[in-house]
Amino acid sequence: MTVATRALLRVLGVSLAVASLPALALAGPPAAPAAPPAERPASVQSFERLPGFAAVVMSHIAASIGLDVLPAAAGFTLEAGVFVTLGLDRVQVFDRDVATLHSGRSTDTHGAPECAHLCPVSLFDAFQAEWLALAIESSERVVEIPNNVVIAAHGQLPAETLLAAAYAAASARPLRPPSLALVLGSSGRGLQGQPFMLLPPQGLELGQGSAALGLQLQFTRGRYLLRAEDPGVVRAVRTESLAALRAALREIKKRHLGKQAIIVTPGEGVNVGDLVEVMVAVRADFPRIVLSAGQDVILP
């Protein structure tokens, strides 16, 4: 805006706040003064409080799948973000139904290339549409696109459905995958979260000199196989006991104090409740839990 225009607007009594608006769209004949501030309802002006994120998630889950079906364990504070609910019959993003499930499984057998076919096309599309809505909201309301996705899943849900939904949500997010957490029902402490990561959809291949241990746990119900990429460094352990698994992990940790991550691959028949049990067992020694659908891990 030119100095002359500013001066003219000042003379005409047009607020400089209006006059400083971008030139392309704002019109405004100088002779038309901006409307005087309208009276807004007092209630709008006095608004102050909203419930917390965890309280909103709790209300939604209670009305949707019920709080008692969540896997129970102590966890960590739930960070605000996109909340996804996985019941046995549907997938919800916030409180919107975005996909149907039959006995906890998707009927869509077409894998989306964007998630290396680890998630159904329909679920990927649904999540991508949600991320678009969030991106538009971000531009209109000047908020960040959420960096967290918290997933509340029925304890009986197949773990592979959880993984498919997590891969769909994470692959569809623009820019980078979000932080992920599974919602836990913690008696007396409200809802808490168990953070986790996902192995990249195409698998993981590290170059020479990475010095990665690559600790991996594959399991079905009650059967656990713990191993590392180099059997010379960590000998494989097979067990049917969670206590024995914990003991083996503790031994490995003693020898590799700097290692924090473990790749966990739930097998056929494992449900979310089983998975949480394992997550709780491993996190004491290896808090960075990386879930995998069985992709390749290639270490030097």
């Binding site: 939604h60 996109v82 969030l134 909201e137 971000s138 960040e144 959420p146």
Partner: peptide, 15 residues
């Protein structure tokens, strides 16, 4: 119809 997380974050400012 907006995201609850966006509403929680931005509603006071928006109002």
């Amino acid at each position: 119809s907006g995201s609850p997380v966006g509403i929680l974050e931005a509603l006071p400012r928006q109002l």
